[in-house]
Write a protein that binds this DNA or RNA. Sequence first.
DNA 1: CTGAAAGCGCTTACAG
DNA 2: CTGAAAGCGCTTACAG
Lengths: 323, 323
Amino acid sequence: MASVDVSTVSRALNNKAYVHPDTKRRIMKAVKALGYSPNLVAKSLRQGKRKTIGVVVPSINISIFGEIVQGMEEQARRDGYSILISNTMDDPVVERDCLQRMRTGLVDGIVIAATGQNTRLLADIASENITVIQVVRSISHQFDCVVADYYRCGYEATAYLIKCGCRHIGLINGRSDMQPYQERYQGYKKAVAKAGLLEHVIEASKDGSQYFEDGYQSTRELLHAVPALDAIMVATDLQGLGAIRAIKKAGLTTPENIRVISLTGHPIGATLETAMTSMQVPSREMGECTTKLMIERIENGDHTSVRHQQIVFDTMLISRETT
Amino acid sequence: MASVDVSTVSRALNNKAYVHPDTKRRIMKAVKALGYSPNLVAKSLRQGKRKTIGVVVPSINISIFGEIVQGMEEQARRDGYSILISNTMDDPVVERDCLQRMRTGLVDGIVIAATGQNTRLLADIASENITVIQVVRSISHQFDCVVADYYRCGYEATAYLIKCGCRHIGLINGRSDMQPYQERYQGYKKAVAKAGLLEHVIEASKDGSQYFEDGYQSTRELLHAVPALDAIMVATDLQGLGAIRAIKKAGLTTPENIRVISLTGHPIGATLETAMTSMQVPSREMGECTTKLMIERIENGDHTSVRHQQIVFDTMLISRETT
DNA sequence: CTGAAAGCGCTTACAG
DNA sequence: CTGAAAGCGCTTACAG
């Protein structure tokens, strides 16, 4: 329509080389008239860049992952990237399938909160020039990661409860082989030992242990095992809901009899009937940071770098009504 | 490595034509040895199919959308499709950008919970052979949609409260120009009129009105405007939290003084300190259904069809402690 | 049953 | 400053 070669159109649209202003004007006019926009798939194939980031998380309906994904997506949009998403439900087989699919040219990089069962596969993928970044869970030191300081989170929450006068603090924790739970436990352990108190730890049944059922059931067990219990630390606000409910059912009250603190704050915490004290994780910022790091890695192509980056965010205590 | 032409490899891998068993075996062996898997981008370009569905929603952190997206993603994975996601925050400009990006060859179809400000653009996109399906919000009859029966939802919730003996029922509703809110209001109106009662409706400030701040603030306003109030209907469980908290702050209790019912159930509703009565929306199923419909449309290529499908899911009353 | 050729829609050296 | 050619990695008629 502008009677020029496609290559000239390409140059005009990408400002790649000098194109005569008149020609350019003609092209732009035609582009507008036809509503033309270049096919990104063809562009990808030619340039070997997808401008797409794959995200593999247990579930976007677990609030921390939902927030992180949203933060990632917003930052990605600003930089002209798209987000391809998969929920694994922490099933290693599902995770493997998702990774296999993504490696096949769909994405430039993969952000993963992994089960830990596919580390070999991830290493293979990384060696194929696909950047791998871990988020929330740092499983392997072979890859960059963006996490929170779980140790300090556990330590500070425990120290705070002790300062409140608690002497029998229960910790409802997730699978002890997962780094975040592991480290939170270490922080708790340290604070409890320092105060000369006993540990009361219970490992919630479900893998993720994000769920209120776990909070409810585990609280019942704790109350039964430790009659003198005066505080409970839970993994998430949702789990805290289960804890509060179990406490209420046992004829006790929060915070008078038993204080509750959640180690992963959720926006709802602030508006509950009894607003929850929690450690706030800057999930939105973590998401943005992850995308930025990813794009930097992709565009500078330093996959070969032996140095890996570990970005650790601080959590913040938000004191509310349950303590 | 198997010393055959790439075309033969392609045929072998796709079972497209007869390939000699021996040759096939040799190829498969090489595939395995090299860990080869075909480049999906090249495949896409050649076949004109992306095997990718674009999803455009206000935010995956609004629980109904999060659940729907997860349902969609699971079904998509089963069928070998991927999900590309965008959060618009109900900003028409962001929505337009996301759609423009997706139309450019990234997806075979778009699932959208739209703002309603880009209907023309959506029609253009649909005319380019990209299937458009609306979810949750049915804005235009030009496209298929998967929704819940908001009218019945509003009607039944109201009728239930009336059956409980309520005479002054407040409705905290979202923007009245959005179909779900509009229809819920119609259902409420009908039930209230049938019982000879007055309407007490308040339009929450935020567009989506999904948020507890709205529930809190609107409840305060309702309590002030209607001293005899004995029930409140809210859009979501999270909004209900705000309502319960406002009721408590006003020195009243739930359900004794004021009953609360949410029109969009969320899993947490069941485990709150005072468990919330709500209308359950089958969001996971809606997500699966949306993906199935999308894939059917894409693979049968009936974009030209003038008949559009409207799939309506029923909601279900779950009676708990707030009523 | 299998190879050679064309083409999906771009970009990018290479000439001119 | 611009056109013609090659090529990204596949698939698919077309011969043989």
